[in-house]
Design a binder for these strands. Sequence first.
RNA 1: GCCAGGGUAGGGUAGUUGGUCAUCCUAGGGGACUGUGGAUCCCCCGACCCGGGUUCGAGUCUCGGCCCUGGCCCCA
Length: 411
Amino acid sequence: MLQKPRGTRDFLPDEMEKRRYIEGIMRETSRRWGYREVCTPEFEELELFTIRSGEGIIQEMYVFEDKGGRKLALRPELTAPVLRLYVNEGRSLPKPLRWCYFSDCFRYERPQKGRYRQFWQFGVELIGADTAMSDAEPVMLAGDILKNTGLTFDLHVGHLSFVKKLLEGVDPAMQRTIRMCLDKKDFPALEDLLETNGLPELRESLIALVESRSLAEAFEITGDIPEKSRIEEVFSILDTSGIPYTLNTGIARGLDYYTGIVFEAFAENLGAENQIMGGGTYRLAHLFGGEDTPSSGFAIGFDRVMVALGEVPAGKDLIVGLVIAPGSREWALLVARAFRDAGIRAETDLSGKGIGAQIAQVSRHADFAVIIGAREAECRMVTLKDLGSGEQNEMTVDEAVTEVKRCGACR
RNA sequence: GCCAGGGUAGGGUAGUUGGUCAUCCUAGGGGACUGUGGAUCCCCCGACCCGGGUUCGAGUCUCGGCCCUGGCCCCA
């Protein structure tokens, strides 16, 4: 038997309804902040993804050549495509641009809990603004979205300038290695690293910085830095907004295009892959042929959010099953139309069996049976049977629709 | 790429020191049943992950692969 490719998943209706419900919360929250949806191609020129990350990431992407010999890749993320879109089409739009997206991405990696080869990201990009407010907005929006999904999470916010200041003058490759240790809070490895590279004097200040829990503490360690007042303003906005967050000056965020604010969110019960969101301020547009443009954004690992949420009480549809006697089909179709026009999910019998068998069938999943037999068809009525209580009455279609809607409203 | 534990109908399971036609539950389909309930009864469908090896004989032992679940690495 054919199987789905490794690291991919099928979704049955029950699960799709939950996913759409949560997705809807994310979309609606973004809409309320003024973020409008964009969509980019499922695949892009390979170069779009290697241009800043190097050839190394090719082995973790789905790369292929089309019939015209073009080197293409299934998108492994969405920030680069969205910025490419901005450079191609968005430069003459009034700034700032507030964009969001919800799309699938592909990475050729070893699957594990919360990590799949096809996965969905919900993200936003705020392009063309460079103020404390524009630094803070995506952080606040990310917190708002995650909160509205009902998730329990920790939001960590940091700024790259602190660590950069302490590592001034250190070889860039070494800086990255050090930042990775800080990100993981792997202090033994950090000590080793500093020791063997003749930088032992950094040990105390770096560890103190990462452990610091207030801006004042952090600035005490780094001394004055040019971005100080901007950073203070951003965090003061976050404080004023009431969003719960933790200062974390150790956040490294994988690659180097982040410029200032960086933030991440973590959920429980996710095992090793517990990061559900990451973002920051960055500069990318110039790499894709645009002007140097300040931007800021984040992406949420949608599948991880779904895993972390566990059971989601997806709103159950109220279901009406139409029980149709032979000869009443014409009237039944009109009745079905009336229910559907009223927004009610109505399913007609397909078996052609007897009334009793149809009711038995319908009662397995529907809330109401609408019985349309010869008697009802003749006088243009229906019999509405509440499958919960067993009560049934003959009435007009309008009355039946009203009655079902009334029940739907009070559930 | 590495490590650990797994893989028997759609789901869940039994299978002895290797020995009929592989157990049971559930789900699914059909019927008993042409004006009223999810029941019951009957019938049907449906599996040893794949391949080599040992053996008279492999679901069982052995090796390799694939896949699943976690973890490491990485994580744009």
